[in-house]
Write a protein that binds this DNA or RNA. Structure first.
Lengths: 176, 176
DNA sequence: CCGCAACTATAAACACGGTGTATACCCTGA
DNA sequence: TCAGGGTATACACCGTGTTTATAGTTGCGG
């Protein structure tokens, strides 16, 4: 996920400072992965450099001075363009599992065992997520659903690949 | 995909030099995305620093001298550990689409239009991939299948989310 | 009332993956 | 002979993200 755009989006509801941004980010997007303070400030610095935001004040808070930032019109355009543009999923068609399978075959390792291991890990993860979903808030449930669907897709690919291993082996050896 | 591990895997079939590595990588994994020469050498440098590979010779070829590298025993262990370890898919449950949807709601933008746009882009991409699959080699077909399964999963999530937009809107406003 | 912990707030150094470009060497053919 | 193209590597640089340092402010226990 593009964290800088998400931050830009949060700032679009009104000028804020880094510390507040971190907390709001975590409240909305941080279910699975909170953002580090360090990343907030380095991202802010880059956005300032690129003219997407600008400092609009510096006020005392409950600690060192807060620097307040606002989205510039260039920033608003940038965000709007991002929102309006569809993503290409997995633009590179490559995955770790694909690479592992091919390399296992190339190195005379047991590719089928590898696929089976991944299958079991996926099933375990699905149970885990399904359990976590029970008590979760709506936004978190949505994120979990996304992961569940994706794991199912992975499982289908694993079955397909596992069934074709002999053919793939031949193809890999050919490339040597 | 983890390119450095893939390179390490390729080197495990015998010592090679950077240039050769680049060509073999592209032949096997490069269907969708070739690796740049620059990345080869910077990755090799890091692997040397980490003791995963070592230089074992320097011979003239059809150009400047070739530096031949071999996998160390630490490198073999590292690779074997990677092959034996299952991946956690989408360890952070976050996606661009999720972020866009939430931000659109937060900014009073049209979230449903956004989802619909993504849906149409996905369908177009599916047609494209299905078409490309027809004439492709086995390894490429496998990679394409992976992408197709994943897009289907995305589509399912889009439908689910689209149906729940009013509830999500309420939740998002709550977080402010 | 002193000192220390916990919270607020930011900055700067650093690591890593990746891209682009420069460099240098060799061979071929017009 | 010399221009062009393939071979081969090195280096500077960029963006994302992590770690660590710094500094003020509040509040609580001894």
């Amino acid at each position: 996920m593009d964290r800088s755009l998400a931050l830009l989006g949060l700032m679009s509801t009104g000028p804020t400072h880094g510390y507040d941004l971190k907390n709001r980010y975590d409240a909305i997007f941080g279910a699975a992965r909170a953002i580090a303070y360090g990343q907030i400030y380095s991202t802010l610095a880059r956005m300032i450099r690129d003219g997407l935001i600008e400092q609009v004040g510096q006020e005392p808070g409950a600690g060192p001075d807060r620097k307040r930032y606002a989205v510039t019109s260039a920033g608003r355009d940038h965000l709007a363009a991002w929102l309006r543009e569809a993503d290409t999923p997995s633009p590179d068609l490559q995955t770790n599992l694909f690479a592992k399978t091919v390399l296992a075959l190339l190195l005379d390792d047991d590719a089928d065992a590898l696929l089976d291991l991944q299958r079991r890990a996926h099933l375990a993860r699905m149970r885990e997520l399904t359990h976590a979903k029970a008590g979760a808030a709506l936004l978190d449930r949505l994120a979990i659903d996304y992961a569940l669907f994706q794991i199912e897709a992975d499982l289908r690919w694993i079955d397909l690949t596992s069934a074709r291993l002999t053919d793939i082996d031949e193809e890999v050896r050919h490339h040597g």
